[in-house]
Design a protein around this nucleic acid. Structure first.
Lengths: 179, 179
DNA sequence: TGCTGTACCGTTCGTCCCGAACTATACGCC
DNA sequence: GGCGTATAGTTCGGGACGAACGGTACAGCA
């Protein structure tokens, strides 16, 4: 209708990126990357190159505007277009969601016959580190702009890691007791 | 050394597949698919086409043998080679693991501003369904061959879904109470 | 014995996604 | 003005995904 922009498939990652732009307005790729790290990272992880490649894709399809700075790093600044906002809102309003997916290499190794002991100890450390990290982001978010989407996501992330730690505890206990 | 087979990168998915072959021996793609569904599915989901494409890749690289049946469906039967077993064992023995990754579209939608109510209700149902499914597999596994890798993975899967349900409860409670 | 319905089984293909490796810019500091 | 380091940005090859489709087996029944 409004322009002969290339049709692309909007994926979860596309929406994640647009949601960030929706919350914070104009951003460079680097800003996007940072914002994702301190918000939805836990529930939708992406490699940092996504913050460079995906906006270009979305812009080509008309969901984002892009202007490149003249000097210096010649960064591109992205913002949602009307079409982008609409697509995001429509998607968010729909009741269908794909089932959640977990990828856990520790479990995979255990499945392949590995001894859980060391792997699990590292994993516990990892979750604890994540908890600290998220609590840090949360503290910043509260000081900053009050209550927003990022904050809710961070709270959920904290709950998630706590539950995972409980799960590890429980599995360790039962395998000690029940074997 | 032993043959000029093509070098490929072994990914988590490669090892998942080899682990299944290690546990059950010779299998067709379809068998592999079924076995993965009733074991590591929760911790390493893959689309069913993987069970057809990946073994071919692995066989070309010398990690699997393949013979095709003569009549009927002309199915290919795969088995681990020496090289495959070794690669799997070495990988499983190593202490490094990639951090776990979760992808959750419900959280993503909430982040994008969606109302959690309906989404969460569906999600609770989904986890309950999974619990039933896994308990079913577990019952079969126990009747079958006794205690194996699959069974341990199923038990962990059950713990996982239970914890996720707890997490949802808790988040619902705090957002009701704390808002 | 042949038809038809349905469950089971297998493959192709275009696009998306990933991560290793690399390059470039900014800026403080000696 | 050169050096170190943190920050910012890009390329590219191949793995992964999922929609769509095609083939095979077999039971039931005419």
């Amino acid at each position: 209708m409004k322009s002969k922009s290339k049709e692309i498939k909007l994926t979860g990652t596309s929406y994640a990126l647009m949601a960030v732009l929706h919350e914070f307005g104009e951003m460079t790729s680097y800003d996007i990357k940072q914002a994702m790290e301190s918000s939805i990272q836990n529930f939708w992880p992406v490699p940092h190159t996504t913050a460079y490649e995906e906006p270009a894709r979305l812009a080509a399809a008309g969901y984002l505007t892009a202007h490149q700075e003249e000097g210096g790093r010649r960064r591109r600044v992205y913002a949602l277009t009307e079409a982008g906002s609409r697509a995001l809102a429509e998607w968010a309003a729909g009741p269908e969601t794909a089932p959640p997916q977990l990828r856990d290499e520790v479990m995979l190794k255990v499945f392949a016959g590995a001894d859980p002991a060391v792997l699990v100890a590292d994993r516990v450390e990892w979750h604890r580190g994540k908890l600290e990290e998220l609590r840090g982001y949360l503290a910043l978010a509260r000081v900053g702009e009050g209550f927003g989407a990022s904050e809710r996501t961070l709270i959920a992330g904290i709950a998630y890691h706590e539950k995972m730690l409980e799960m590890i505890d429980r599995l360790a206990a039962t395998s000690r007791g029940g074997d």
